[in-house]
Nucleic acid binder design. Structure first.
Lengths: 166, 166
DNA sequence: GCTTGCGTTCGAGCGCGCTCGAACTCGTAG
DNA sequence: CTACGAGTTCGAGCGCGCTCGAACGCAAGC
């Protein structure tokens, strides 16, 4: 997935500020949420480069209604600041595992205006819980993997449990 | 995915022992690693029930060479303890995101005998790192999501950044 | 004897998120 | 004028991990 690259880059950018399992300084959170770059209109290639995804994918996102993009006189896409910011947001949500269809729904709500704010908040809260759950799952799986590494073996469960007790 | 159910059940089973972000007591790790149940041969329905996946999926795993299963006189699958243990292992690895093709490789190594132990260990170590990375990613995304919830708005980046500073 | 229920094999289909290729159009540089 | 590179649209294809359905088999209970 191209999005893996993005997170790698974000992690690389932010890595210096983030303790391995520590809490996040406010500055880091700002850099996670705010786009950081942007400023002037960009071509599809520039946006692709910035986000670490392919032009193909950007066109796909547009076709799915996730973002609206203008054209210049030659019919080429022009990503203005709003489009850029939205794509940064979308990309981050994708990274944390939010399905495209939920994002499409969210975007739809945004386009419907301010009265959908509560429903949008609900979506975010639900997503937050999903991410938290997933982190818990992975933490448990990690513990199991580390335990298996420690007591090795490499048994898939075929052999006898062997003499363990770490 | 059916595997989501499994983790739900594991979490439900273990939830009482696990602090939300705390460390894991040894007992919990044992329960994560050891199958807990098993004992006597099982039918496909029983195994499916135990693991929280469908009989279809179990047949699929077998067809992919992830596990070897015997038959009774009627041609029905009989999952012995070894098969059960292996499936528990496989299911857990799948849960933490290890691709089937890596598991297939791992299983192949197991079948090749003890001299592949170092390579198996490498696979596990690599997987551990992948899981750790993923947890880091999700933690950052979670922070971003929580920040967005806190400063709400629900902007996708379209509107002006608004007066924030939490 | 026939139905019911759980099992079998095989191959096709699906949902997701891209990914790619073909055929075409611009605008600029040589 | 022509060649090139970056862009366009459209539709097909892919990799993953299932998921489903059709057609069949066997064994127990009424």
């Amino acid at each position: 997935m191209a999005t893996d690259d993005l997170m790698s880059r974000i992690l690389a950018d932010l890595g210096d500020f983030v303790e391995v399992d520590g809490t996040l300084p406010v500055e880091v959170i700002h850099r996670l949420v705010d786009s950081g770059e942007s400023g002037s209109p960009m071509s599809i290639a520039e946006v692709a480069q910035m986000l670490g995804l392919s032009a193909h994918t950007l066109r796909y996102y547009e076709s799915q209604g996730l973002v609206t993009v203008g054209r210049d006189s030659a019919g080429h896409r022009v990503y203005d600041t709003a489009a850029q910011r939205r794509l940064v947001f979308l990309t981050r949500m994708r990274l944390s595992g939010m399905p495209m269809r939920d994002l499409a729904h969210y975007v739809e709500l945004v386009e419907q205006g301010e009265e959908t704010v509560p429903e949008r908040l609900d979506l975010l809260l639900e997503h937050r819980d999903t991410v938290r759950r997933r982190i818990r799952e992975l933490t448990l799986s990690l513990a199991a993997t580390e335990y298996k590494i420690a007591t090795y073996g490499g048994r898939t469960g075929d052999e006898s449990p062997a003499t363990e007790t770490p």
